[in-house]
């Protein structure tokens, strides 16, 4: 069957979808603060994604197991695929995935890629990923930091909540502001050019 006219992000074709998936792990771990960091350095030919949380963390044996495609902490389904998929995506693109976790402290997942690697997935719609997380989890604090060749942009929902309050995050006027703010952030980072043009 041929899919027509519907580019849904069907399957995990964007790194931004993997970021959304990592954030889901942090949410399930009961995190109050989740920090998402994207570092793009075309001189060093690196793209690094880091998701850091203050959730429940993992014991050593679980840490090994979560990278195995046949393990999950879920009970509704026996097979967890998120982390193994990202690990494969990183290793296919000249990179690696590292997992650092301490019970009671939190977890840090870092996925590194060779920026120019032909098999590196495009970063994709980071603004959409961040907006999704903020609107559907107003209680959780999120920091999104993104650096592209020295240009840095940051969003901290604690600052936003200080201005309008937590309950206001889902209101149309605030959603509208967030959407424009995120779009402008992306425009600033890429200076109007796409990632591909930057890497040339």
């Amino acid at each position: 069957m041929i899919a027509v006219g519907y580019d849904s992000g069907d399957k995990m074709r964007e790194l931004a979808l993997h970021v959304l998936d990592l954030v889901q792990n942090s949410l399930r771990a009961g995190a109050n603060l989740i920090e998402v960091e994207i570092l793009e350095d075309t001189d060093l030919d690196r793209l690094t994604i880091t998701v850091r949380d203050d959730g429940c963390g993992m014991e050593e044996n679980l840490k090994e197991k979560v990278l195995d495609p046949f393990t999950t902490t879920r009970t509704t389904r026996k097979v967890g695929l998120g982390l193994p998929l990202l690990k494969m995506a990183a290793e296919r693109a000249g990179g690696r995935l590292t997992l650092d976790s301490e019970p009671g402290k939190g977890t840090v997942v870092e996925a590194a890629f060779q920026h120019s690697h032909i098999d590196r997935m495009p970063l994709g719609d980071m603004a959409g990923t961040i907006l999704t997380v903020i609107i559907s989890n107003p209680k959780v604090n999120l920091v999104y930091r993104h650096q592209v060749d020295g240009r840095e942009w940051q969003l901290d929902t604690r600052v936003i909540k200080d201005e309008v309050g937590e309950d206001a995050l889902g209101l149309p006027a605030v959603i509208n502001w967030l959407r424009s703010y995120l779009e402008e952030g992306q425009n600033y980072l890429y200076g109007g050019a796409t990632t591909d043009e930057v890497t040339g």
Binding site: S8, D10, Q24, R74
Partner: peptide
């Protein structure tokens, strides 16, 4: 928003819902 949902397009569905509201 599990991995299964995300892989099937849950983010786009969520963004469409948010935009429509």
């Amino acid at each position: 928003m599990g991995t299964c949902g995300i892989a099937a397009g849950a983010r786009e569905v969520m963004l469409a819902l948010i935009e429509e509201l």
